[in-house]
Design a protein around this nucleic acid. Sequence first.
DNA 1: TGTGAAAGATAGATAGC
DNA 2: GCTATCTATCTTTCACA
Lengths: 149, 149
Amino acid sequence: MDEIDRKLIEALSEDARQPLSALGAAVGLSQSAVNERIRRLTDRGAIRRVMADSDPEALGLPVLAFVWLALADGASEAGFRAFAAADPAIIACHHVTGQWSYLLQVRLPSLAGVELFLAALKAGGWLGRSETMLALTEVVAPPFRYRGA
Amino acid sequence: MDEIDRKLIEALSEDARQPLSALGAAVGLSQSAVNERIRRLTDRGAIRRVMADSDPEALGLPVLAFVWLALADGASEAGFRAFAAADPAIIACHHVTGQWSYLLQVRLPSLAGVELFLAALKAGGWLGRSETMLALTEVVAPPFRYRGA
DNA sequence: TGTGAAAGATAGATAGC
DNA sequence: GCTATCTATCTTTCACA
């Protein structure tokens, strides 16, 4: 992972459909050297995948909510993690320091969807305490990976 | 944006390098019909880009911090937004409801980096109040777009 | 919008150096 | 790592449904 690898990943993060020749020109290597580096970066897992970044609004998911969660007493951590991994509305879930145990980032069709989501958390027996904040403007928008309805 | 479009975006979100023939087989359309749909989805902006999702740890950015921020009195909103857009450590920045004005998601090389980041926020005159939480486990990992050192 | 087919352009993969 | 070659894939275009 040298400076050239970093530049390649930066360029591919911007646009992964650039020809190898363009990448080569950008970093000062031949097309095949670039190809070989990308192969190695992918094998090592430094590049995890090449994916489409899509617009959540176009997919009918305009609402982004941040949900702070303290698990219910006695709820299984492993069970909750399986639940989070399975729900396509959950675009990120981190175990965090501080007074809450998890921070969820959720994409939903509407505010009503937020209410349904919280109800599902409660019905699953996961929800101890929680606090929800809604995203207004996206000042720096992270990539969005659509995981299905 | 019908069911087929959604399936295409879901498949491309998983792996954007599949041949059109494979996508066609998955959704029950010909290669040329798939090609045409992807072109339209891209033109409309439903597909924003095709990018590499990389591993922040491999890039020397193992620390993810959530920084809740209330802007300093008199700080310019526009100025702060330009600052956020320019700093590659900031992978997401949302204006949010509730007691804080912004939520920043920041990728950094170390805990010392978090301290430096907060110091830079303060030095820029943006920081009113703030509260930082560190991510421990990534239960559901969002895609990561490397924006450079 | 979609199908099927065919031509041409492009880029990825491979092998020898 | 480079150059050259081979091959898979994409793109474009057509006639037709």
